[in-house]
Design a protein around this nucleic acid. Structure first.
Lengths: 106, 106
DNA sequence: TCATTATATGACCATAATATCATATGATAT
DNA sequence: ATATCATATGATATTATGGTCATATAATGA
């Protein structure tokens, strides 16, 4: 751990939100502008913009202007292995626990 | 992504807290019981127990009873590469941004 | 059995995160 | 210059998270 604990916490916090994860997921299919992300997710534009800002700040997505459009791409180098790795962990440890006690409140 | 977005979000949320990260960090040195974790972190016992529960739920730490003591170990298989990977990402993308705009409120 | 030590649990309050609403900026075209 | 479209920003209300306090459980020993 080379950085402060706050920095790590902040970083993981960016991934701790299902809506942001859905945006990431949509971007894994390829480059998309904000409108396309809204369409794919059925999220409001302002919400998407706010969350893209968080993701961009943490280097999880990159932005590229094209006229009045802004295209976003996911940082595959980071996101792909991070999620694959998390998948593997969940397969082994997490899912067998879900539903036991700690069920997240709706 | 094989699991629900909520599950991933919940998982990363467990890592989105500096105190939990500090507990993890202490456990990386080796197996410790709750009292030893309190001593090492200077955290209150109840706070440590609450946070250990979260970490254990997500398979990030394991627990082993020994008399009235409960020893915890970190799940190195998951935590070590996850943190190393995050380090590498931060070296490249994150730290150069810190302090620019999104500084976390105190 | 009772006392003590170690740890966990539940309730509560303060703080932080989040989506939404209203509005602003920026780019293009007319 | 103004209208329009795409996106961003700021404020606010609501919800979620987290630490603390009080208390419970569990194990051991006297």
């Amino acid at each position: 751990m080379k950085h402060t604990l706050e920095t790590y916490g902040f970083f993981f916090g960016a991934l701790a939100n299902p809506n942001r994860l859905q945006i990431i997921n949509v971007l894994r299919q390829g480059k998309k502008n904000v409108g396309e992300i809204c369409e794919a997710t059925r999220f409001e534009q302002t919400m998407v913009s706010h969350n893209l800002k968080v993701l961009e700040y943490h280097g999880m997505v990159f932005m590229e202007k094209d006229g009045k459009l802004r295209y976003y791409t996911v940082n595959k180098k980071t996101i792909k292995p991070l999620l694959e790795f998390t998948d593997a962990h969940m397969d082994e440890y997490c899912c067998k626990l879900l539903g036991e006690q700690h069920e997240r409140k709706k």
